[in-house]
Amino acid sequence: MPSSAAVDDYLKVVYQHTEWQDERITPSQLAQQLGLAPSSVTEMVQKLAAAGLVDHRRYGPIRLTEGGAHRAAAIVRRHRLVETWLVREYGYTWDEVHDEAEILEHALSDRLLDRIDAQLGRPRFDPHGDAIPDAAGRTERVPFIMLGDAPAGHVARVLRVSDRDPQLLRELDRLGVDVGRELTVVDATAPALDVRFTGDSDAVALPREAYDAIWLSA
């Protein structure tokens, strides 16, 4: 098998793909998200299948086995706890933590990770609103609607903001978007994307990239 870190990176992407929807990831989608050649991903998936971490048939989607899901949840837990720790204790902003967590998630011992978890008060969500699996790998998916699908007048809390685009995160932070903040959708039809935060009188125009980057409570 390749290095443990490489295996974890694959399993983490497969795990995250179905957190907010039910369609399983395909090898081509996995290659795109990892930024790797499809041939390299195909070879790795075969090794993961041989190790009993994923189920995969040729040309079909990829599914985590019970063992693969447990390992994936463990590394996702590490990553999101580290992100939360860096934001709360060291003043990192939510657009800065991903790359740091990618490094630290492989370096911390289980004992230190549990100490960090306890120090933070056993948080359930990271700074972007993603659920932090508990020590047994359990999470709950709450009912949601994408900002771009929300009708005018929909009142909701921000559940999650995608962390894929640091520049978008910085812009949303400047505009006042934050996980847990309540807002009302004023208009989410092209070319407008306007919301009004609870307690504010003026609507805020969000960038179009936020259309499919913000999850709202349903």
Rank of each mutant, 00 (worst) to 15 (best):
E102C: 12
D8L: 11
R71W: 06
L86D: 01
A74Q: 09
T189F: 09
R181E: 04
D163T: 08
T26L: 02
M146G: 05
P38E: 08
S4I: 12
T139E: 01
Y211P: 05
R58E: 09
D202L: 05
A218W: 10
L172R: 05
R170I: 05
M1W: 14
P123E: 09
L172Q: 07
E102L: 14
E140W: 14
R78N: 05
S162G: 08
A203C: 01
G121T: 00
E171I: 14
V7Q: 15
R141C: 01
P166I: 03
Y90W: 10
Q119M: 12
R78F: 03
K47G: 07
D9L: 14
L86Q: 00
S201T: 15
D165I: 09
E19Q: 14
A190D: 14
E19T: 13
A203Y: 04
G153P: 00
R111E: 13
L11H: 00
D163S: 11
D117K: 08
L193F: 02
M1T: 15
T42I: 07
G129A: 05
S162D: 13
A210N: 03
A188S: 12
G199N: 03
R196W: 05
A190Q: 10
H106N: 03
D95V: 08
L159Y: 04
L34G: 04
V177G: 07
E19V: 13
Y92V: 09
V87Y: 06
P143Y: 03
G91F: 03
